[in-house]
Write a protein that binds this DNA or RNA. Structure first.
Lengths: 184, 184
DNA sequence: GTCTATACACCGATAGAC
DNA sequence: GTCTATCGGTGTATAGAC
């Protein structure tokens, strides 16, 4: 029962970039051990169910980031355009200017799809619905609001794919800049 | 020197779905052996450089599919709208109604990104440029044509990500249907 | 709570018979 | 050209000392 070197959350934060960059299979315990500075056995102390639990914790951590930095601003009072602008700004940071992949997409396209399908589906749906609600508040017809919100998130995901495929983050930045006019 | 059970191309065709579904790391020799019906040693006879060569061959095979079914129709004579319509129809088949992932995206987001980066980048750029050329022929200003083409492919990729994340191919189908009006 | 050492399965890859 | 058998390495996971 010695004092922990890091809090659980600090450990998870150090696991994030490994799963984000290498995917589930590619995130080996060797890499996870190196990125945290903890031995494998110590990781199993924090996450008794092993790699699955680590990935689930990382996914949960990222969903909290999304919730607090993207969804929460959308739910606040104020001009819809202003709220969407805050989302854009925070997404730019979230995805490191387009250089980092979306964990949801990496896990959804990868081999581990079924393992995390429920969490991924819920996160994407919540995002779409929250954004859609802002548009409805701005006077957009509900069906149209839903469609535009789906299109917006779809373009964000697509631009992140192309950013990695083309090695060019320009598309991602342009998609974020056009978000407001696309939506309103 | 006994007679081969399959041609090289038949073998590659059987390797495709494994890489497409499981990614590079997830496509183990056990799975590749099972899907082809060949023992591991036989696979190494066809692909002396092992898994890397198999994946490269699969990527090349898919790029030929893209070339012949998507790009070639775009280059033919005829109404631009008609040519784009042919592309949409063939993309619908290519991605199995949105149920199958794009190999380019899987490899671009996965752990093996650097291994195939050149091939991926070239394929995406060729696609964008070929589509852009059709728009220019239709009278669209070149910069605008490039931007619209990027947007179209970005939306296709994004919709494939969401199709897997949401377990719903509706978005992919809608993106294909809106392709023509988006572009022209 | 972290470590070293280790178990055991599976990975990619090769050798050699047929 | 395909097979069985096997190699060395690495994967995840665990045991037990401190």
């Amino acid at each position: 029962m010695s004092a922990p070197l890091m809090s659980r959350e600090e450990v998870i934060a150090k696991l994030v970039p490994v799963f984000r960059q290498y995917g589930y299979d590619g995130a080996t315990l060797a890499k996870l051990s190196e990125s945290t500075g903890l031995g494998r056995a110590s990781l199993y102390h924090h996450f008794p169910n092993g790699k699955r639990e680590m990935a689930a914790a990382v996914l949960n951590y990222m969903n909290q980031w999304l919730e607090s930095s993207v969804l929460e601003p959308l739910r606040q009072d104020g001009e819809p355009a202003e709220r969407i602008c805050v989302m854009s700004t925070n997404l730019y940071k979230f995805y490191n200017c387009g250089k980092d992949a979306c964990l949801l997409a990496v896990l959804a396209l990868g081999e581990s799809r079924d393992l995390f399908h429920t969490q991924i589906q819920k996160a994407l749906n919540t995002w779409i619905e929250t954004l859609s609600h802002v548009l409805v508040e701005a006077g957009v017809e509900p069906n149209c609001a839903r469609r535009r919100s789906e299109n917006a998130i779809l373009k964000i995901q697509g631009s992140l794919v192309l950013a990695r495929g083309l090695n060019d983050t320009g598309l991602f930045e342009r998609v974020l800049q056009c978000l407001i006019e696309d939506l309103l």
